[in-house]
Simulated scan of single mutants.
Amino acid sequence: MKQLEERLGYLFHDRSLLENALTHSSYANENKQKGEASNERLEFLGDSVLGMVVADHLFRSHPDMPEGELTRTRAALVCEESLVEVARKLELGQYLKLGRGEDAGGGRKRPSIQADAVEAVIAAVYLDGGIGSARKFITSFILTNNEREQEGGIRDYKTALQELVQRESGQVLSYRLTGESGPDHAKVFRVEVDLNGTPAGKGEGRSKKEAEQSAAKAAIAHLTGAAADG
């Protein structure tokens, strides 16, 4: 745990909070007799703390950014993909307490479990050290992801693509799954987005949602490039 605290940049006064943040419901269910509690309550609190800190940062640092763009940027910064990146930087997976079945099924690398654990850790830091400590952690690991912030939330490429094609009436976008590969705990999905029945972009990702975003990003590049060429 000391090594993880060093990676977090925060030393806990009450280390049991960190232990709880790393306890998945599958482990808690298998160890009820020991009084183990899952990290779900901490995840709930951490989600709110994260959202508030990010919203406050965006509001103060981008005084001219309209509400819709603020919302998209916040969503890009706090999305599962962003939180999984944090978990991987911290190598959080190796510290998770999982049930035997979840562990054997690749739970340590499961994006949803990793993202939830990051939110729980944020709550643990908040409860142990206050909002200042939580803000410092969020700033270090999430708000320093300048690529997402500078894109003004355009990591929500599906919305950006929808707004792009709606400049002309009668435009119809559709997404379809074209394939998937890999084991259940590490699947890769492939998606194609069509504009008026014509392929406009392809993408892949660890979830269908991520693959759709990737395809939308490719479509934006294709359409804006075609417009520039034209």
Rank of each mutant, 00 (worst) to 15 (best):
T23P: 13
Y126A: 12
N29A: 01
R206T: 13
V188W: 10
L58D: 12
G130V: 15
H222R: 11
N145S: 05
V121Y: 01
V86I: 03
K32T: 00
V49Y: 14
T144G: 06
E5A: 01
Y157W: 09
E163S: 02
Q171L: 02
E212I: 11
V191R: 06
F59D: 15
V53E: 15
H13A: 03
T139K: 11
L11G: 00
L58E: 13
A104Q: 12
E67D: 12
K209N: 14
V86H: 08
D47L: 03
A226D: 13
T198R: 01
V188N: 07
E43N: 11
Q162V: 12
R155T: 01
I154K: 02
S48D: 10
D229H: 13
G9D: 02
L90N: 01
P66S: 06
L4W: 03
G107N: 09
G51H: 12
D64P: 03
L17N: 10
G105C: 06
A134T: 15
T73S: 09
T224A: 11
G35F: 02
H57V: 11
V172N: 06
A227P: 09
L58N: 14
K32R: 12
E30A: 00
V84G: 00
V191I: 15
Y95N: 06
A219R: 10
L4E: 04
V78H: 00
K97S: 13
C79Y: 03
E204H: 07
L8C: 04
S16F: 14
D194W: 07
G129L: 02
G99S: 07
G51K: 11
E149R: 15
G201W: 05
L127H: 12
D56Y: 13
L164Q: 02
S26W: 08
Q94P: 05
H24L: 05
A215L: 12
A227Y: 13
K202W: 05
L77G: 05
V54N: 07
L8E: 03
Q166P: 00
G35E: 06
S26L: 06
L161V: 10
A215E: 04
D116E: 11
G179D: 06
E91T: 05
T23F: 08
A104W: 03
V84Q: 00
L11A: 01
P66E: 09
K136I: 02
